[in-house]
Design a protein around this nucleic acid. Sequence first.
DNA 1: CGTAGACTTGACGGCACTCAAACAAGGTGG
DNA 2: CCACCTTGTTTGAGTGCCGTCAAGTCTACG
Lengths: 243, 243
Amino acid sequence: MIEDIDALVRKLERRDTVSPEERAALLAAAGPMITFAAGTDLVREGDRPDRSMLVAQGFTTRYRLLGDGTRQITAIHLPGDFVDLHSFLIRTMDHSVGALSACRVVTFPHTNLRMITERYPHLSRMLWLMTLLDSAIHREWIVAMGRRSALEQLAHLLCEIFTRLSVVGLGDRDRELILPINQTELGDTLGLSTVHVNRTLQQMRAEHLITWQGQTVRILDWQRLAGIAEFDETYLHLDAEAR
Amino acid sequence: MIEDIDALVRKLERRDTVSPEERAALLAAAGPMITFAAGTDLVREGDRPDRSMLVAQGFTTRYRLLGDGTRQITAIHLPGDFVDLHSFLIRTMDHSVGALSACRVVTFPHTNLRMITERYPHLSRMLWLMTLLDSAIHREWIVAMGRRSALEQLAHLLCEIFTRLSVVGLGDRDRELILPINQTELGDTLGLSTVHVNRTLQQMRAEHLITWQGQTVRILDWQRLAGIAEFDETYLHLDAEAR
DNA sequence: CGTAGACTTGACGGCACTCAAACAAGGTGG
DNA sequence: CCACCTTGTTTGAGTGCCGTCAAGTCTACG
Protein backbone atom coordinates (compact mmCIF):
# COMPACT_ATOMS: atom_id res chain seq x y z
CA MET A 1 0.00 0.00 0.00
CA ILE A 2 2.81 2.36 0.87
CA GLU A 3 4.07 2.16 -2.70
CA ASP A 4 0.62 3.00 -4.01
CA ILE A 5 0.77 6.46 -2.52
CA ASP A 6 4.41 6.85 -3.40
CA ALA A 7 3.74 8.89 -6.53
CA LEU A 8 1.51 11.24 -4.53
CA VAL A 9 4.20 11.70 -1.90
CA ARG A 10 6.74 12.50 -4.61
CA LYS A 11 4.33 15.02 -6.08
CA LEU A 12 3.81 16.60 -2.67
CA GLU A 13 7.48 16.65 -1.77
CA ARG A 14 8.25 18.45 -4.96
CA ARG A 15 6.18 21.34 -3.56
CA ASP A 16 6.59 21.13 0.20
CA THR A 17 7.75 18.92 3.04
CA VAL A 18 5.75 15.88 4.08
CA SER A 19 6.35 14.94 7.71
CA PRO A 20 6.37 11.30 8.82
CA GLU A 21 3.12 11.94 10.72
CA GLU A 22 1.49 13.36 7.62
CA ARG A 23 2.62 10.45 5.54
CA ALA A 24 1.20 8.10 8.15
CA ALA A 25 -2.03 10.08 8.23
CA LEU A 26 -2.35 9.75 4.48
CA LEU A 27 -1.78 6.03 4.66
CA ALA A 28 -4.29 5.72 7.47
CA ALA A 29 -6.85 7.62 5.42
CA ALA A 30 -6.55 5.25 2.50
CA GLY A 31 -9.35 2.76 1.97
CA PRO A 32 -9.55 -0.19 -0.41
CA MET A 33 -7.64 -0.30 -3.65
CA ILE A 34 -9.53 -0.79 -6.90
CA THR A 35 -8.48 -1.72 -10.40
CA PHE A 36 -10.19 -0.64 -13.60
CA ALA A 37 -9.87 -2.01 -17.10
CA ALA A 38 -8.96 0.32 -19.95
CA GLY A 39 -12.03 2.01 -21.35
CA THR A 40 -14.14 1.73 -18.23
CA ASP A 41 -15.37 4.62 -16.11
CA LEU A 42 -14.08 5.25 -12.60
CA VAL A 43 -16.91 7.67 -11.83
CA ARG A 44 -19.72 9.11 -13.89
CA GLU A 45 -21.29 12.52 -14.25
CA GLY A 46 -24.13 12.78 -11.76
CA ASP A 47 -22.58 10.34 -9.28
CA ARG A 48 -22.20 11.37 -5.66
CA PRO A 49 -19.15 9.39 -4.60
CA ASP A 50 -18.35 8.90 -0.91
CA ARG A 51 -14.64 8.57 -1.57
CA SER A 52 -11.99 10.10 -3.78
CA MET A 53 -9.56 8.18 -5.93
CA LEU A 54 -5.82 8.52 -6.27
CA VAL A 55 -4.18 7.02 -9.33
CA ALA A 56 -1.42 4.60 -8.37
CA GLN A 57 -0.92 3.16 -11.85
CA GLY A 58 -2.26 3.98 -15.28
CA PHE A 59 -3.68 6.95 -17.15
CA THR A 60 -7.15 8.43 -16.71
CA THR A 61 -9.13 11.32 -18.18
CA ARG A 62 -11.90 13.54 -17.02
CA TYR A 63 -14.42 14.16 -19.76
CA ARG A 64 -17.84 15.46 -20.65
CA LEU A 65 -20.20 14.15 -23.32
CA LEU A 66 -22.26 16.67 -25.27
CA GLY A 67 -25.71 16.40 -26.75
CA ASP A 68 -24.48 15.66 -30.26
CA GLY A 69 -22.35 12.79 -29.01
CA THR A 70 -19.05 14.63 -29.15
CA ARG A 71 -16.71 14.42 -26.21
CA GLN A 72 -14.34 16.84 -24.58
CA ILE A 73 -11.59 15.67 -22.30
CA THR A 74 -10.86 18.31 -19.66
CA ALA A 75 -7.95 16.69 -17.88
CA ILE A 76 -5.48 13.83 -18.15
CA HIS A 77 -4.36 12.23 -14.90
CA LEU A 78 -1.19 10.30 -14.20
CA PRO A 79 0.00 8.27 -11.22
CA GLY A 80 0.12 10.54 -8.18
CA ASP A 81 -2.94 12.53 -9.27
CA PHE A 82 -6.27 12.49 -7.51
CA VAL A 83 -8.92 12.17 -10.21
CA ASP A 84 -11.79 13.44 -8.11
CA LEU A 85 -10.46 14.92 -4.91
CA HIS A 86 -12.92 17.75 -5.53
CA SER A 87 -15.86 15.36 -5.10
CA PHE A 88 -15.04 15.48 -1.38
CA LEU A 89 -16.46 19.02 -1.28
CA ILE A 90 -18.27 19.43 -4.58
CA ARG A 91 -20.30 16.28 -3.91
CA THR A 92 -22.03 15.78 -7.26
CA MET A 93 -19.76 14.91 -10.18
CA ASP A 94 -20.19 17.34 -13.07
CA HIS A 95 -18.12 15.17 -15.39
CA SER A 96 -17.02 11.57 -15.77
CA VAL A 97 -13.63 9.95 -15.27
CA GLY A 98 -12.48 7.20 -17.60
CA ALA A 99 -9.50 4.89 -17.71
CA LEU A 100 -7.22 5.30 -20.71
CA SER A 101 -5.26 2.23 -19.69
CA ALA A 102 -5.69 -0.42 -17.05
CA CYS A 103 -5.51 1.42 -13.74
CA ARG A 104 -4.98 0.85 -10.10
CA VAL A 105 -6.37 3.46 -7.75
CA VAL A 106 -6.34 3.99 -4.01
CA THR A 107 -9.63 5.18 -2.54
CA PHE A 108 -9.89 7.77 0.20
CA PRO A 109 -13.26 7.77 1.98
CA HIS A 110 -14.54 11.31 2.33
CA THR A 111 -15.00 10.85 6.06
CA ASN A 112 -11.26 10.25 6.31
CA LEU A 113 -10.46 13.27 4.20
CA ARG A 114 -12.71 15.31 6.41
CA MET A 115 -10.82 14.08 9.42
CA ILE A 116 -7.57 15.20 7.82
CA THR A 117 -9.01 18.71 7.43
CA GLU A 118 -9.96 18.65 11.12
CA ARG A 119 -6.63 17.43 12.45
CA TYR A 120 -3.89 18.10 9.96
CA PRO A 121 -4.13 21.68 8.68
CA HIS A 122 -0.84 21.55 6.83
CA LEU A 123 -1.63 18.27 5.12
CA SER A 124 -5.02 19.73 4.25
CA ARG A 125 -3.36 22.70 2.61
CA MET A 126 -1.23 20.34 0.57
CA LEU A 127 -4.31 18.46 -0.59
CA TRP A 128 -5.96 21.77 -1.40
CA LEU A 129 -2.81 22.61 -3.36
CA MET A 130 -3.26 19.44 -5.42
CA THR A 131 -6.63 20.73 -6.63
CA LEU A 132 -5.09 24.15 -7.28
CA LEU A 133 -2.55 22.52 -9.55
CA ASP A 134 -5.39 20.93 -11.50
CA SER A 135 -6.85 24.39 -11.82
CA ALA A 136 -3.59 25.86 -13.10
CA ILE A 137 -3.42 23.12 -15.72
CA HIS A 138 -7.01 23.82 -16.73
CA ARG A 139 -6.09 27.45 -17.29
CA GLU A 140 -3.10 26.50 -19.38
CA TRP A 141 -5.34 24.33 -21.54
CA ILE A 142 -7.76 27.23 -21.99
CA VAL A 143 -4.89 29.39 -23.20
CA ALA A 144 -3.77 26.66 -25.57
CA MET A 145 -7.24 26.05 -26.95
CA GLY A 146 -7.99 29.71 -27.39
CA ARG A 147 -4.75 31.04 -28.77
CA ARG A 148 -2.52 28.28 -30.03
CA SER A 149 -2.51 26.43 -33.36
CA ALA A 150 -3.03 22.69 -33.47
CA LEU A 151 0.72 22.12 -33.74
CA GLU A 152 1.53 24.42 -30.83
CA GLN A 153 -1.23 22.98 -28.70
CA LEU A 154 -0.14 19.40 -29.28
CA ALA A 155 3.47 20.33 -28.60
CA HIS A 156 2.39 21.95 -25.35
CA LEU A 157 0.45 18.90 -24.22
CA LEU A 158 3.44 16.66 -24.84
CA CYS A 159 5.75 18.95 -22.90
CA GLU A 160 3.29 19.08 -20.04
CA ILE A 161 2.75 15.35 -19.80
CA PHE A 162 6.44 14.61 -20.02
CA THR A 163 7.20 17.12 -17.27
CA ARG A 164 4.43 15.84 -15.02
CA LEU A 165 5.59 12.26 -15.50
CA SER A 166 9.10 13.27 -14.53
CA VAL A 167 7.83 14.76 -11.28
CA VAL A 168 6.57 11.39 -10.14
CA GLY A 169 9.66 9.58 -11.35
CA LEU A 170 8.17 8.21 -14.56
CA GLY A 171 10.08 10.40 -16.96
CA ASP A 172 12.66 8.73 -19.12
CA ARG A 173 16.14 10.11 -19.67
CA ASP A 174 15.74 9.47 -23.41
CA ARG A 175 12.47 11.36 -23.31
CA GLU A 176 10.66 8.25 -24.38
CA LEU A 177 7.31 7.53 -22.81
CA ILE A 178 4.39 5.19 -23.05
CA LEU A 179 1.23 7.15 -23.77
CA PRO A 180 -1.89 4.98 -23.84
CA ILE A 181 -3.87 7.52 -25.82
CA ASN A 182 -5.03 7.20 -29.41
CA GLN A 183 -5.61 9.91 -31.97
CA THR A 184 -9.34 10.10 -31.34
CA GLU A 185 -8.75 10.68 -27.64
CA LEU A 186 -6.06 13.20 -28.49
CA GLY A 187 -8.58 15.04 -30.62
CA ASP A 188 -11.12 14.99 -27.80
CA THR A 189 -8.45 16.45 -25.55
CA LEU A 190 -7.32 19.23 -27.86
CA GLY A 191 -10.74 20.05 -29.26
CA LEU A 192 -9.67 18.86 -32.72
CA SER A 193 -10.89 16.22 -35.14
CA THR A 194 -9.10 12.89 -35.38
CA VAL A 195 -8.14 13.63 -38.94
CA HIS A 196 -6.49 16.87 -38.02
CA VAL A 197 -4.65 15.30 -35.11
CA ASN A 198 -3.29 12.74 -37.53
CA ARG A 199 -2.06 15.40 -39.92
CA THR A 200 -0.54 17.42 -37.11
CA LEU A 201 1.30 14.36 -35.83
CA GLN A 202 2.62 13.72 -39.30
CA GLN A 203 3.90 17.26 -39.44
CA MET A 204 5.68 16.79 -36.11
CA ARG A 205 7.27 13.61 -37.39
CA ALA A 206 8.25 15.24 -40.66
CA GLU A 207 9.99 17.98 -38.70
CA HIS A 208 11.79 15.39 -36.57
CA LEU A 209 10.26 16.69 -33.36
CA ILE A 210 8.94 13.35 -32.18
CA THR A 211 8.37 9.75 -33.10
CA TRP A 212 5.07 8.16 -32.14
CA GLN A 213 4.41 4.54 -32.94
CA GLY A 214 1.76 2.65 -31.07
CA GLN A 215 1.89 3.96 -27.54
CA THR A 216 5.57 4.74 -27.63
CA VAL A 217 6.34 8.41 -27.92
CA ARG A 218 9.83 9.80 -28.09
CA ILE A 219 10.61 13.47 -27.99
CA LEU A 220 13.51 13.97 -30.38
CA ASP A 221 14.05 17.69 -29.96
CA TRP A 222 12.85 19.00 -26.63
CA GLN A 223 14.22 22.50 -27.16
CA ARG A 224 12.40 23.03 -30.40
CA LEU A 225 9.23 21.36 -29.17
CA ALA A 226 9.14 23.54 -26.06
CA GLY A 227 9.86 26.55 -28.22
CA ILE A 228 6.96 25.84 -30.56
CA ALA A 229 4.70 25.33 -27.55
CA GLU A 230 6.04 28.37 -25.69
CA PHE A 231 6.20 25.88 -22.86
CA ASP A 232 6.97 27.48 -19.50
CA GLU A 233 6.68 25.09 -16.57
CA THR A 234 5.96 27.88 -14.07
CA TYR A 235 2.29 26.90 -14.01
CA LEU A 236 3.19 23.47 -12.65
CA HIS A 237 4.71 25.12 -9.57
CA LEU A 238 7.60 22.76 -9.08
CA ASP A 239 9.31 24.68 -6.31
CA ALA A 240 9.30 23.26 -2.82
CA GLU A 241 8.34 25.86 -0.26
CA ALA A 242 6.35 25.97 2.95
CA ARG A 243 2.67 26.18 2.11
CA MET B 1 -16.73 46.40 5.72
CA ILE B 2 -19.44 43.88 6.53
CA GLU B 3 -21.19 44.74 3.28
CA ASP B 4 -17.98 44.20 1.35
CA ILE B 5 -17.95 40.53 2.15
CA ASP B 6 -21.70 40.25 1.75
CA ALA B 7 -21.50 38.86 -1.79
CA LEU B 8 -19.04 36.20 -0.61
CA VAL B 9 -21.32 35.22 2.24
CA ARG B 10 -24.24 34.90 -0.18
CA LYS B 11 -22.10 32.76 -2.43
CA LEU B 12 -21.11 30.56 0.50
CA GLU B 13 -24.62 30.30 1.90
CA ARG B 14 -25.87 29.12 -1.43
CA ARG B 15 -23.66 26.04 -0.93
CA ASP B 16 -23.51 25.52 2.82
CA THR B 17 -24.23 27.13 6.17
CA VAL B 18 -22.05 29.94 7.48
CA SER B 19 -22.11 30.14 11.26
CA PRO B 20 -21.92 33.51 13.05
CA GLU B 21 -18.45 32.58 14.29
CA GLU B 22 -17.29 31.80 10.79
CA ARG B 23 -18.67 35.03 9.48
CA ALA B 24 -16.86 36.86 12.26
CA ALA B 25 -13.67 34.96 11.49
CA LEU B 26 -13.90 35.99 7.86
CA LEU B 27 -14.39 39.61 8.83
CA ALA B 28 -11.51 39.42 11.26
CA ALA B 29 -9.28 37.97 8.54
CA ALA B 30 -9.96 40.85 6.19
CA GLY B 31 -7.25 43.44 5.76
CA PRO B 32 -7.35 46.79 3.98
CA MET B 33 -9.70 47.49 1.13
CA ILE B 34 -8.29 48.63 -2.19
CA THR B 35 -9.83 50.20 -5.27
CA PHE B 36 -8.62 49.77 -8.83
CA ALA B 37 -9.43 51.79 -11.92
CA ALA B 38 -10.76 50.03 -15.01
CA GLY B 39 -7.95 48.70 -17.13
CA THR B 40 -5.41 48.40 -14.33
CA ASP B 41 -3.93 45.18 -13.01
CA LEU B 42 -4.70 43.85 -9.54
CA VAL B 43 -1.82 41.36 -9.68
CA ARG B 44 0.65 40.40 -12.35
CA GLU B 45 2.10 37.15 -13.58
CA GLY B 46 5.27 36.44 -11.62
CA ASP B 47 4.14 38.34 -8.53
CA ARG B 48 4.26 36.63 -5.15
CA PRO B 49 1.42 38.33 -3.30
CA ASP B 50 1.17 38.09 0.48
CA ARG B 51 -2.60 38.50 0.45
CA SER B 52 -5.57 37.35 -1.61
CA MET B 53 -8.24 39.64 -2.98
CA LEU B 54 -12.00 39.30 -2.83
CA VAL B 55 -14.06 41.34 -5.29
CA ALA B 56 -16.61 43.50 -3.49
CA GLN B 57 -17.59 45.57 -6.51
CA GLY B 58 -16.77 45.45 -10.20
CA PHE B 59 -15.67 42.92 -12.79
CA THR B 60 -12.20 41.43 -13.15
CA THR B 61 -10.48 38.90 -15.41
CA ARG B 62 -7.61 36.53 -15.10
CA TYR B 63 -5.51 36.49 -18.25
CA ARG B 64 -2.28 35.42 -19.87
CA LEU B 65 -0.31 37.26 -22.54
CA LEU B 66 1.40 35.21 -25.22
CA GLY B 67 4.61 35.79 -27.09
CA ASP B 68 2.90 37.16 -30.17
CA GLY B 69 1.01 39.73 -28.12
CA THR B 70 -2.30 37.91 -28.12
CA ARG B 71 -4.19 37.52 -24.88
CA GLN B 72 -6.33 34.78 -23.44
CA ILE B 73 -8.69 35.45 -20.61
CA THR B 74 -9.09 32.34 -18.44
CA ALA B 75 -11.70 33.56 -15.98
CA ILE B 76 -14.13 36.38 -15.33
CA HIS B 77 -14.75 37.30 -11.71
CA LEU B 78 -17.76 39.03 -10.20
CA PRO B 79 -18.47 40.42 -6.74
CA GLY B 80 -18.19 37.60 -4.22
CA ASP B 81 -15.35 35.91 -6.10
CA PHE B 82 -11.79 35.65 -4.87
CA VAL B 83 -9.54 36.52 -7.79
CA ASP B 84 -6.42 34.91 -6.42
CA LEU B 85 -7.29 32.83 -3.40
CA HIS B 86 -5.00 30.20 -4.91
CA SER B 87 -1.99 32.52 -4.46
CA PHE B 88 -2.26 31.67 -0.76
CA LEU B 89 -0.89 28.20 -1.53
CA ILE B 90 0.42 28.48 -5.08
CA ARG B 91 2.57 31.46 -4.12
CA THR B 92 3.80 32.61 -7.52
CA MET B 93 1.13 33.99 -9.86
CA ASP B 94 1.12 32.16 -13.19
CA HIS B 95 -1.24 34.71 -14.74
CA SER B 96 -2.33 38.32 -14.26
CA VAL B 97 -5.60 39.74 -12.97
CA GLY B 98 -7.03 42.88 -14.53
CA ALA B 99 -9.98 45.13 -13.77
CA LEU B 100 -12.67 45.26 -16.45
CA SER B 101 -14.40 48.05 -14.59
CA ALA B 102 -13.57 50.16 -11.56
CA CYS B 103 -13.30 47.69 -8.68
CA ARG B 104 -13.28 47.57 -4.95
CA VAL B 105 -11.60 44.57 -3.38
CA VAL B 106 -11.10 43.32 0.15
CA THR B 107 -7.65 41.95 0.88
CA PHE B 108 -7.04 38.87 3.01
CA PRO B 109 -3.44 38.57 4.24
CA HIS B 110 -2.17 35.05 3.72
CA THR B 111 -1.17 34.80 7.36
CA ASN B 112 -4.82 35.30 8.26
CA LEU B 113 -5.96 32.72 5.74
CA ARG B 114 -3.44 30.32 7.18
CA MET B 115 -4.88 30.94 10.62
CA ILE B 116 -8.32 30.09 9.31
CA THR B 117 -7.00 26.75 8.05
CA GLU B 118 -5.52 26.11 11.51
CA ARG B 119 -8.61 27.00 13.52
CA TYR B 120 -11.70 26.79 11.37
CA PRO B 121 -11.69 23.53 9.41
CA HIS B 122 -15.21 23.96 8.12
CA LEU B 123 -14.63 27.51 6.95
CA SER B 124 -11.42 26.29 5.34
CA ARG B 125 -13.35 23.67 3.44
CA MET B 126 -15.71 26.35 2.20
CA LEU B 127 -12.80 28.46 0.99
CA TRP B 128 -11.34 25.38 -0.67
CA LEU B 129 -14.74 24.89 -2.25
CA MET B 130 -14.55 28.40 -3.74
CA THR B 131 -11.41 27.42 -5.63
CA LEU B 132 -13.07 24.17 -6.69
CA LEU B 133 -15.91 26.15 -8.23
CA ASP B 134 -13.35 28.14 -10.22
CA SER B 135 -12.01 24.82 -11.39
CA ALA B 136 -15.43 23.59 -12.46
CA ILE B 137 -15.93 26.77 -14.45
CA HIS B 138 -12.54 26.33 -16.08
CA ARG B 139 -13.58 22.86 -17.19
CA GLU B 140 -16.82 24.15 -18.62
CA TRP B 141 -14.90 26.73 -20.61
CA ILE B 142 -12.60 24.00 -21.94
CA VAL B 143 -15.65 22.08 -23.11
CA ALA B 144 -17.07 25.19 -24.74
CA MET B 145 -13.81 26.11 -26.47
CA GLY B 146 -13.19 22.60 -27.69
CA ARG B 147 -16.60 21.52 -28.83
CA ARG B 148 -18.97 24.43 -29.21
CA SER B 149 -19.43 26.87 -32.08
CA ALA B 150 -18.87 30.58 -31.55
CA LEU B 151 -22.62 31.13 -31.16
CA GLU B 152 -23.02 28.31 -28.66
CA GLN B 153 -19.97 29.36 -26.71
CA LEU B 154 -21.09 32.96 -26.43
CA ALA B 155 -24.58 31.87 -25.43
CA HIS B 156 -23.05 29.68 -22.75
CA LEU B 157 -20.93 32.47 -21.34
CA LEU B 158 -23.95 34.76 -21.08
CA CYS B 159 -26.00 32.09 -19.31
CA GLU B 160 -23.14 31.47 -16.90
CA ILE B 161 -22.53 35.08 -16.04
CA PHE B 162 -26.21 35.79 -15.58
CA THR B 163 -26.60 32.80 -13.28
CA ARG B 164 -23.51 33.67 -11.25
CA LEU B 165 -24.67 37.25 -10.86
CA SER B 166 -28.03 36.01 -9.61
CA VAL B 167 -26.33 33.95 -6.92
CA VAL B 168 -24.86 37.07 -5.35
CA GLY B 169 -28.08 39.02 -5.72
CA LEU B 170 -27.05 41.00 -8.78
CA GLY B 171 -29.31 39.28 -11.27
CA ASP B 172 -32.15 41.29 -12.70
CA ARG B 173 -35.68 39.98 -12.97
CA ASP B 174 -35.83 41.32 -16.53
CA ARG B 175 -32.60 39.49 -17.28
CA GLU B 176 -30.93 42.78 -17.97
CA LEU B 177 -27.37 43.24 -16.82
CA ILE B 178 -24.48 45.64 -17.02
CA LEU B 179 -21.49 43.90 -18.55
CA PRO B 180 -18.39 46.09 -18.65
CA ILE B 181 -16.74 44.02 -21.35
CA ASN B 182 -16.11 45.03 -24.94
CA GLN B 183 -15.95 42.89 -28.03
CA THR B 184 -12.17 42.64 -28.00
CA GLU B 185 -12.22 41.35 -24.43
CA LEU B 186 -15.03 39.01 -25.34
CA GLY B 187 -12.88 37.64 -28.13
CA ASP B 188 -9.96 37.18 -25.74
CA THR B 189 -12.29 35.28 -23.46
CA LEU B 190 -13.78 32.98 -26.06
CA GLY B 191 -10.61 32.49 -28.08
CA LEU B 192 -12.16 34.27 -31.07
CA SER B 193 -11.25 37.33 -33.10
CA THR B 194 -13.00 40.63 -32.43
CA VAL B 195 -14.50 40.56 -35.90
CA HIS B 196 -16.05 37.19 -35.37
CA VAL B 197 -17.40 38.15 -31.98
CA ASN B 198 -19.07 41.11 -33.64
CA ARG B 199 -20.69 38.93 -36.28
CA THR B 200 -21.81 36.39 -33.71
CA LEU B 201 -23.40 39.12 -31.61
CA GLN B 202 -25.21 40.38 -34.67
CA GLN B 203 -26.53 36.93 -35.30
CA MET B 204 -27.80 36.72 -31.73
CA ARG B 205 -29.51 40.07 -32.12
CA ALA B 206 -31.00 39.08 -35.46
CA GLU B 207 -32.46 35.99 -33.83
CA HIS B 208 -33.90 38.09 -31.01
CA LEU B 209 -31.93 36.23 -28.38
CA ILE B 210 -30.41 39.30 -26.78
CA THR B 211 -29.94 43.02 -27.07
CA TRP B 212 -26.52 44.46 -26.29
CA GLN B 213 -25.94 48.17 -26.49
CA GLY B 214 -23.02 49.72 -24.71
CA GLN B 215 -22.65 47.74 -21.51
CA THR B 216 -26.33 46.95 -21.21
CA VAL B 217 -27.17 43.38 -22.09
CA ARG B 218 -30.66 41.99 -22.00
CA ILE B 219 -31.47 38.36 -22.49
CA LEU B 220 -34.69 38.29 -24.49
CA ASP B 221 -35.23 34.55 -24.74
CA TRP B 222 -33.56 32.65 -21.91
CA GLN B 223 -35.03 29.30 -22.89
CA ARG B 224 -33.72 29.42 -26.41
CA LEU B 225 -30.37 30.89 -25.36
CA ALA B 226 -29.86 28.16 -22.76
CA GLY B 227 -30.94 25.60 -25.35
CA ILE B 228 -28.39 26.78 -27.89
CA ALA B 229 -25.70 26.74 -25.18
CA GLU B 230 -26.81 23.38 -23.76
CA PHE B 231 -26.51 25.29 -20.52
CA ASP B 232 -26.82 23.06 -17.46
CA GLU B 233 -26.07 24.85 -14.21
CA THR B 234 -25.05 21.65 -12.42
CA TYR B 235 -21.39 22.63 -12.69
CA LEU B 236 -22.05 25.74 -10.58
CA HIS B 237 -23.12 23.50 -7.69
CA LEU B 238 -25.88 25.69 -6.35
CA ASP B 239 -27.22 23.24 -3.79
CA ALA B 240 -26.68 23.97 -0.11
CA GLU B 241 -25.39 20.93 1.74
CA ALA B 242 -22.96 20.26 4.55
CA ARG B 243 -19.44 20.27 3.16
C1' DC C 1 -15.46 70.16 -33.24
C1' DG C 2 -11.77 67.07 -33.25
C1' DT C 3 -10.18 62.80 -31.53
C1' DA C 4 -9.97 58.25 -29.41
C1' DG C 5 -12.11 54.06 -28.58
C1' DA C 6 -15.47 50.87 -29.86
C1' DC C 7 -18.20 48.89 -33.26
C1' DT C 8 -19.22 47.45 -38.05
C1' DT C 9 -18.55 45.92 -42.78
C1' DG C 10 -16.32 43.73 -46.86
C1' DA C 11 -13.04 40.89 -49.24
C1' DC C 12 -10.25 37.22 -49.09
C1' DG C 13 -7.65 33.34 -47.29
C1' DG C 14 -6.53 29.37 -44.51
C1' DC C 15 -6.82 26.23 -40.78
C1' DA C 16 -9.37 22.74 -39.47
C1' DC C 17 -13.85 19.98 -40.27
C1' DT C 18 -16.66 16.44 -42.62
C1' DC C 19 -17.34 12.57 -45.30
C1' DA C 20 -15.62 8.54 -47.21
C1' DA C 21 -12.60 5.03 -48.04
C1' DA C 22 -8.38 2.54 -47.73
C1' DC C 23 -4.75 0.60 -45.06
C1' DA C 24 -2.38 -1.56 -41.02
C1' DA C 25 -2.09 -4.44 -37.09
C1' DG C 26 -3.47 -7.18 -33.39
C1' DG C 27 -6.69 -10.47 -31.53
C1' DT C 28 -9.97 -14.21 -32.02
C1' DG C 29 -12.23 -18.26 -33.23
C1' DG C 30 -13.04 -22.00 -36.22
C1' DC D 1 -2.82 -21.45 -38.69
C1' DC D 2 -5.27 -18.44 -41.23
C1' DA D 3 -9.68 -15.93 -42.51
C1' DC D 4 -12.02 -12.43 -40.14
C1' DC D 5 -13.03 -8.69 -37.29
C1' DT D 6 -12.05 -4.83 -34.58
C1' DT D 7 -9.55 -0.90 -33.55
C1' DG D 8 -6.57 2.56 -34.93
C1' DT D 9 -4.20 5.13 -38.54
C1' DT D 10 -3.83 7.31 -42.96
C1' DT D 11 -5.22 9.64 -47.21
C1' DG D 12 -8.09 12.46 -50.44
C1' DA D 13 -11.59 15.67 -51.80
C1' DG D 14 -14.48 19.21 -50.82
C1' DT D 15 -16.35 22.58 -47.50
C1' DG D 16 -16.92 26.09 -44.04
C1' DC D 17 -16.08 28.49 -39.90
C1' DC D 18 -13.42 31.78 -38.42
C1' DG D 19 -9.10 34.71 -39.03
C1' DT D 20 -6.69 38.63 -41.13
C1' DC D 21 -6.41 42.94 -43.20
C1' DA D 22 -8.22 47.20 -44.12
C1' DA D 23 -11.38 50.68 -44.09
C1' DG D 24 -15.35 52.99 -42.59
C1' DT D 25 -18.93 54.41 -39.06
C1' DC D 26 -20.59 55.65 -34.69
C1' DT D 27 -20.36 57.64 -30.13
C1' DA D 28 -18.57 59.84 -26.15
C1' DC D 29 -16.05 63.30 -24.51
C1' DG D 30 -12.79 67.01 -23.81
